[in-house]
Design a protein around this nucleic acid. Structure first.
Length: 458
RNA sequence: GUGGGCGUAGCUCAGUUGGUUAGAGCGCCAGAUUGUGAUUCUGGAAGUCGCGGGUUCGAUUCCCGUCGCCCACCCCA
């Protein structure tokens, strides 16, 4: 939608300041000559009926699939205390937060759902029967530069399992993800999931830097996540920088980078201890994925670590095989998030699946279904004299659960029929002077092109 | 943030080497069809040529700025 900019001059006399409470936000009234920008703010979208039908269809698939896996839907406020997000991520992400101070509270629009879920779990930790399976479909916000498939607001389907330490949780989640991809019509192989475990790295450094400084693990992963973008030399430099957050020895950095090159479990095994728990977990996970029939869709890739600080174990990301888009979905295990936020430890794993990138992919692949208006019946009165009868018919049909459009005003029959045809309407109910006089309504079946009469009924 | 491309009707676009009333297809509206969907035909409405400024007798066209979109890079999931 390449729309030109459209402004209208604000009419000063029509200007209103809707109930701005005293002492509330900086709701300064615009100057009389200030222009009203009719475009949505950059990076945000309007959903017209066509787009809304697609969105509902996609979200319906998310919900349907989540339900089939026994997940329950939850929700949380879109506005949270900013500290919920700034705590773990630090200064950098503050600049990507939609945040503001209101009545001395520092608030933020959620950039992701996981911290809110953690907050909810912690609040009722004692009452929870673990494991719990929760899903959400929420709008998330992040103030950053736009590229294809990435905007400042997007909707994300989240699937999370709390309280299950074994990789059976990961396998179940990956199966749910592929169930959606299959349902979207994305042929096997079109989308793959790269998978790794941060625990492999963690183990290898446990007797090294992490022995004295376990807190460097998250920044280490954040640096490694940049491997594709800045290259091995730059990553090594960052890892070994004595003034940096990590401070590896040259030897440690070298062995870390060597590990990242592994593209199979057997390769990874060469770098892991013989009794590696992380490797055993991965082998178990792949055995489970085999049972789900998706193991071949989930290549192991030791360079995948993901950018979020809180991941601790298995991490994965879905991407289109052509590689033309950014990640479709991503997730991983975050066993220490709950305690980081002040709760008791609860193992957890989950993924987020955004609507933006998958939307682009469906567009590229021509996989969006044709979604017509969902109206079943149209009721039409030829003149105002028949309106009461038409209203009675429409009301009766609606009470019976039908989706009914009542022709309003003086729309021409030809036009109403044409629109009904395009909308996939099943039946049109016609009431004219003749029908009203005889106490009947003419029912036209649009598909069969047949008409019959039914009593108007008292 | 940097570089490049683009912005003309609701949509997809053409066009103007600066010159009277700016075009096409699709869509929309109306009629042919006095109570009935398709096709066809006929007619019609709709544009401050993204916005602002400059140059010029004259700008949609040239120049500058600005906003928006796309691509690449940067940054980041």
């Amino acid at each position: 939608m390449s729309q030109g900019r459209k402004h209208i001059e604000k009419n000063p006399s029509a200007e209103q300041t809707p109930g701005a409470a005293p002492g509330s936000a900086p709701a300064s009234a615009p100057a009389p000559s200030e222009e009203l920008d009719l475009q949505p703010p950059r990076g945000t979208r309007d959903f017209y009926p066509d787009e809304m039908r697609r969105r509902n269809w996609l979200f319906g698939l998310f919900r349907e699939t989540a339900g089939r896996f026994g997940f329950e839907e939850v929700d949380a406020p879109m506005v949270e205390h900013a500290s919920l997000f700034t705590r773990k991520a630090g200064e950098e992400i503050v600049h990507q937060l939609y945040h503001f101070v209101l009545h001395d509270r520092h608030l933020a629009l959620r950039p992701e759902m996981t911290p809110s879920l953690a907050r909810m779990v912690i609040a009722r930790q004692g009452a929870m029967r673990f494991p719990i399976r929760w899903f959400t479909v929420t709008q998330n916000w992040r103030y950053e530069r736009m590229t294809r498939g990435r905007r400042r607001e997007h909707y994300q389907w989240n699937m999370d399992i709390w309280g299950e330490p074994s990789v059976e949780a990961e396998a179940e989640l990956l199966s749910a993800m592929f169930t959606v991809l299959d349902a979207l019509g994305l042929a096997r192989g079109k989308v793959k999931v790269r998978l790794n475990s941060r625990a492999l790295l963690e183990e290898s450094l446990r007797t090294g830097v992490l022995a004295k400084r376990p807190e460097v693990f998250a920044p280490l992963c954040v640096v490694i996540d940049k491997l594709d973008k800045i290259g091995a030399e730059a990553v090594t430099e960052l890892l070994c920088d004595p003034a940096g957050a990590v401070g590896l020895s040259a030897g440690e950095a070298e062995s870390v980078l060597a590990m990242l090159a592994a593209r199979s479990l057997d390769e990874a095994a060469r770098f892991a201890a013989p009794d590696s728990a992380a490797l055993a977990d991965l082998r178990r996970l792949y055995a489970l994925l085999e049972a789900y029939g998706i193991a071949d869709q989930v290549p192991f890739d030791a360079s995948v670590v993901r950018g979020l600080a809180y991941y601790t174990g298995v991490v994965f990301e879905a991407f289109d095989a052509a590689g033309s888009l950014r990640a479709i979905a991503g997730g991983g295990r975050y066993d220490r998030l709950a305690e980081t936020l002040g709760g008791k430890p609860v193992p957890a794993v989950g993924f987020g699946f955004g609507d933006a990138v998958i939307g682009e992919l469906l567009e590229d692949e021509g996989l969006w279904p044709a979604l017509a208006r969902d109206v079943q019946d149209v009721v039409y009165a030829f003149s105002s004299a028949e309106k009461p009868a038409a209203i009675a018919v429409a009301t009766r049909l609606r009470a019976a659960g039908r989706r009914v459009e009542l022709a309003l005003g003086t729309a021409k029959l030809k036009r109403v029929l044409g629109d009904a045809d395009k909308a996939g309407v099943e039946r049109v109910w016609l009431i004219g002077e003749d029908e009203r006089a005889r106490g009947v309504v003419k029912v036209r079946d649009l598909a069969k092109k047949m008409e019959h009469e039914e009593p108007l009924k008292g």
